[in-house]
Design a protein around this nucleic acid. Structure first.
Length: 496
RNA sequence: GGUCCUGUAGCCGAGUGGCUAGGCAAAGCUCUGCAAAAGCUUCUACACCAGUUCGAAUCUGGUCGGGACCUCCA
């Protein structure tokens, strides 16, 4: 079975065929680095991380471009840390590039904490002013743009005469024109729906560049068109982003691309859905906005404690990227337990010494092959991670039954065991990018010390000295380490 | 007002016209010195109303909720 993706441009699931065999060009709208990213942004970036990883898993060579928006309409009012009422002394107010630097670094730290693979190219808007100016010049030449007093606007109505503005979002321009409000600078435009390609800078705009039309800064939608064209070509495979960017951002992007070179950019458009907390959209005004790192350190009144990045990621993966997801504390707790179950099963099978020698294919082998095939089939079906995880839990169940003796070692062949181990491992770590927060421990000094305690406890139990054995177990438990007595008299330990 | 999405068990969530998703929670049993973990079993739901069909959670129409976008937003 081959990969199918839901293309929001055509509103249907389509077979994915890359333009260049074995290669994929992937563009995702990145963060605006004027503030901390939202957890919703995090979900989007985690979703595309999974998509990127799965494409690689399938054997594609992927060029993954995710921009950093560090130019645009920043004014003193919006720049954090800049207080207009205070001294305007140069060193006391933040330079725009200091803000950009601060939040770019912070963004990368978060992406790293959540174990996402960096894009192969991460271009900045400020680094591509020249390309953006060139694109505006082409749009002017092609007659889809006009200049008014140092600003350049995209002529939506003229574009719509020849092409289809609204092809992505399903809107039509008459309704749009009727519904628009009066905003600053509207009187310059030929029509209310025209959008800025270049804006003349007023003095309070602290980021501005020279252009053929005077000092100014690029429009909000232009950078993605310019940079995707530069790095992926006039047509490329996948363009991704959050649902809320569909209109106007992505619609404008398509218009700019078509107006520039008659090509609409991406062949497949993928949109991730919104994330709610306790049934509500997270927003600062509702007081329910939680930052990504606050989930990790638990430093927020709506959270009971911190959760490992993989827990949040696992929670994301348990629903489909294009579904709305409502998260809450119970969901986090559930995800933590579920993830632990999978990780422990993976640990168990990893250090296994069953001495399986059979090469005969058994019933269980066939079941394992089916589950492994299901995992791929689910992922091929528009990256259905939720369903894939359901299959991984079946693996966990088989592993636990083998461990508990409900399934005998002779019921599985070494090839079957191998397939189980590699499949579980590759989905957990390679495709989903989860981390085993408890692992890493085997064979280190802590483990040696734990073995000592375990041996003392075993002796105590053998002498029926349950006071001592319970003391060891209870005090370790209080320290965040849990001991498990196993059937064969063995003991294992884990954090948490 | 316009464009679109959505309603699935106690909770979260997959779901392709017929085939019990899965996780968490709960109950019982097995194992256990006691726990924990694990295994087995139980809980069979699709907002409402009509229609299409041999058969609808799934398709169509309507009603009622919820949400997103239309304005910087993932």
């Amino acid at each position: 079975m081959s990969l199918k993706v839901y293309n929001t441009l055509t509103r249907q699931k389509e077979e994915f065929k890359s333009i260049t065999p074995n290669h994929v060009g992937l563009y995702v709208c990145g963060p605006t680095v004027y503030s901390e990213p939202h957890v919703g942004n995090l979900r989007t970036f985690c979703s595309f991380d999974m998509i990127y990883r799965y494409l690689i898993f399938l054997g594609y060579k992927v060029r993954y471009v995710r921009n950093i928006t560090d130019a645009g309409h920043l004014t003193n009012e919006r720049g954090e840390g800049v207080n207009r009422m205070e001294s305007q002394a140069k060193l006391e107010s933040l330079e725009p590039m200091e803000i950009v630097q601060k939040y770019t670094v912070s963004f990368h730290r978060i992406m790293d904490a959540f174990n996402t693979v960096p894009p192969t190219i991460e271009p900045t808007a400020t680094g591509h002013i020249v390309e953006q100016i060139e694109m505006i010049e082409t749009l002017l030449k092609n007659g889809f743009a006009y200049e008014v007093d140092g600003s350049v606007y995209f002529d939506v109505k003229k574009y719509n005469d020849q092409h289809n503005y609204g092809v992505l979002s399903g809107r039509n321009i008459d309704e749009l024109m009727a519904g628009y409000r009066d905003l600053d600078g509207q009187e310059e435009k030929r029509n209310s729906i025209d959008f800025a390609l270049w804006k003349k800078a007023s003095p309070e705009h602290i980021m501005q560049w020279n252009s053929p039309w005077g000092k100014g800064f690029p429009g909000w939608h232009l950078e993605c068109s310019a940079m995707s064209t530069k790095y992926l070509g006039e047509t490329f495979d996948i363009h991704g982003g959050g649902m809320d960017l569909k209109f106007p951002h992505h619609e404008c992007e398509i218009a700019q691309n078509v107006g520039n070179c008659k090509q609409g950019g991406a062949k497949y458009w993928l949109h991730t859905n919104m994330l709610n907390f306790n049934g509500q959209k997270m927003s600062k005004s509702l007081g329910n906005s939680i930052l990504p790192m606050e989930f990790v350190n638990g430093n927020h009144p709506l959270l009971d404690k911190g959760y490992a990045p993989s827990v949040l990621k696992f929670l994301f993966l348990q629903s489909h990227y294009s579904s709305e997801l409502d998260i809450n504390v119970k969901g986090l707790q559930d995800a933590e337990k579920g993830l632990k179950r999978l990780m422990e099963a993976n640990d168990v099978i990893g250090n296994w010494e069953l001495g399986i020698s059979s090469n005969h294919k058994t019933e269980l082998d066939i079941k394992i092959e089916t589950i492994a095939a299901n995992c791929k089939e689910c992922m091929d079906d528009d990256f259905n991670t939720a369903k894939t995880i359901g299959n991984l839990f079946e693996f966990a169940s088989i592993i636990n039954s083998l461990k508990g003796g409900q399934i005998k070692p002779e019921e599985i062949s070494s090839a079957g065991l191998d397939l189980l181990i590699t499949t579980l491992h590759s989905y957990l770590f390679d495709v989903f990018g989860l981390r085993n927060e408890n692992a890493t421990i085997a064979n280190n000094k802590l483990d040696d010390a734990m073995q000592l305690l375990i041996n003392i406890r075993k002796d105590a139990k053998a002498k029926k000295d349950f006071v001592t054995s319970d003391k060891i177990r209870n005090e370790l438990s209080a320290a965040g380490i849990s001991l498990k007595d196993e059937k064969d008299g063995g003991m294992s330990w884990s954090l948490g």
